[in-house]
């Protein structure tokens, strides 16, 4: 849309051309640069408003994972007796949960972009991707607090000598990037489809729970056997969570082929999401 005009009106330089016949050719990097102040203010709004008028404030971010790990510990560890591969159970669950939450939060937040911002989008124009990205950044900041809890627990067990991390830890940024792309890609696809089919709003929560159990969060991949094991590996999140656990805890399956599959899957999913989002943002306000 914001392209220099080449065909018509050569004598005049227009800053903005909206042509019904030409599809938009977005430059997301330029959009981000031009709207960086808006991005930071939207992130700030998300972070500040959630915990206004609460007593514990951001402490809630720590209480949630602690409670969940406690539940996992008693239900899956004690009651069901599912193995944790010899890793201390609390650390085992916390590792899986922290990275799972990273994926799930990004997916949920980005899937909600059009519906959550419908009012603003109906009155003011700015690149819609800014709002999607702001949602992702603010959830990333919230997750950083949960990551710090994970690191403290991890260091505690490390000092105790209960775990043996390895050099694959340096690939952590790559793992995080793949998880983020999977979440954002899936979220953008869902955001575009929810505009037309509200049904998907109900599907997201249930769907996430199904994927949660298909991902080795509360159990190690090593106990999944035979055809079930093979099926699990087609879930692009499974190799990542296992690889993360392998690098942090020294226990888990590290398979570079399946990791490459995850990475490719993530890039493809993100690209499809981006294209669908671009297509939807043009006219979604007429449908929503």
């Amino acid at each position: 849309m914001r392209t220099p005009d080449s065909s018509a009106n050569q004598d005049e330089s227009w800053d903005l051309i909206i042509d019904a016949k030409k599809s938009s050719n977005r430059n997301h990097f330029k959009d981000f640069f031009n709207n960086r102040d808006l991005l930071s203010l939207l992130v700030k709004r998300d972070l500040v408003t959630i915990y206004k008028q609460t007593i514990l404030g951001p402490l809630w971010l720590l209480i949630q994972p602690v409670l969940k790990v406690a539940i996992f510990y008693f239900v899956f560890g004690k009651l069901a007796g599912i193995s944790t591969d010899g890793v201390p159970a609390v650390l085992f669950y916390l590792t899986g949960l922290t990275f799972w939450e990273f994926f799930a939060t990004i997916l949920k937040k980005s899937a909600d972009v059009f519906t959550a911002n419908q009012h603003i989008f109906g009155k003011v124009y700015f690149p819609r991707m800014i709002a999607a990205f702001a949602a992702v950044v603010s959830s990333a900041v919230k997750l950083a607090i949960q990551f710090s809890l994970f690191f403290i627990v991890w260091i505690y067990y490390l000092v105790q000598g209960a775990i043996s991390p390895n050099l694959f830890l340096i690939a952590l940024p790559v793992f995080l990037l793949i998880i983020a792309l999977l979440g954002l890609g899936g979220g953008l696809i869902l955001s575009a489809l929810t505009v037309k089919y509200r049904d998907l709003r109900f599907v997201i929560d249930t769907g996430l729970q199904v994927i949660f159990y298909l991902t080795p969060v509360i159990y190690p991949l090593s106990i999944a056997q035979g055809s079930f094991f093979n099926a699990l590996l087609f879930n692009p999140l499974a190799p990542i969570i296992e690889a993360v656990r392998y690098s942090f805890l020294g226990q888990g399956v590290f398979d570079s082929m399946f990791l490459a599959y995850s990475a490719l899957f993530a890039i493809l999913l993100f690209w499809i999401g981006l294209k669908l989002f671009e297509k939807t943002e043009r006219n979604f306000i007429d449908t929503i």
């Binding site: 227009w14 051309i17 909206i18």
Partner: peptide
């Protein structure tokens, strides 16, 4: 729009 062009400076 579904038809036409808008140009702005």
């Amino acid at each position: 729009p579904t038809a036409g062009i808008i140009r702005a400076k």
